[in-house]
């Protein structure tokens, strides 16, 4: 193995490299999990919109406007996202204590992280659900009521 300083032991570099690779992998997997969660949420909301097509058609026939339908679908998506975020926060609150000895320069319950991550997740969930929600606003009540 090459050494930067021949007289110094290479233990420190090796340890840092392992930590760096682990952190990178951890970040990559976290990003992947995040992307999968968004794709999943998009799929679930798309499915729910398809399931609720008849209801949306009835609501439109009774006077609902596209903005009202958008609110209805987004509220459901936000409800699901909020449930996930709250569960995640509770689990994170306890799980971070187990990682306390691995942390440097940051508290297990770091207010910035505990505020930023849920905000980012909620915003991402909102974005992921906006496509099926917009699709719901284009439901033709005539078609929805005819093909129950």
């Amino acid at each position: 193995m090459y050494m930067l300083v021949p007289d110094e032991p290479n233990i420190g570099f090796a340890t840092l490299a392992v930590i760096f690779v682990s952190a990178t992998l951890l970040g990559l997997f976290a990003g992947l999990a995040f992307a999968l969660a968004l794709i999943g949420l998009n799929g679930v909301i798309s499915y729910l919109v398809a399931q609720r097509t008849h209801e949306i058609g009835v609501r439109m026939a009774l006077g609902a406007r596209p903005a009202g339908v958008l609110r209805l679908v987004l509220a459901q998506a936000l409800g699901m996202a909020a449930a996930g975020v709250v569960t995640g926060l509770i689990v994170a609150f306890f799980a971070t204590r187990l990682l306390a000895n691995q942390l440097y320069g940051v508290e297990p319950v770091d207010p910035t992280t505990f505020l930023a991550v849920p905000t980012m997740l909620t915003a991402a969930a909102l974005a992921a659900s906006s496509i099926p929600a917009l699709r719901a606003t284009r439901v033709d009540p005539l078609v929805a009521l005819r093909y129950e």
Partner: peptide
């Protein structure tokens, strides 16, 4: 064409809400 997951009361409320 009543909304299945709403009660009779809630179904009657729907047009009013809009």
């Amino acid at each position: 064409h009543l909304i299945d997951n709403l009660t009779v009361f809630e179904n009657l409320e729907v047009p009013l809400s809009y």
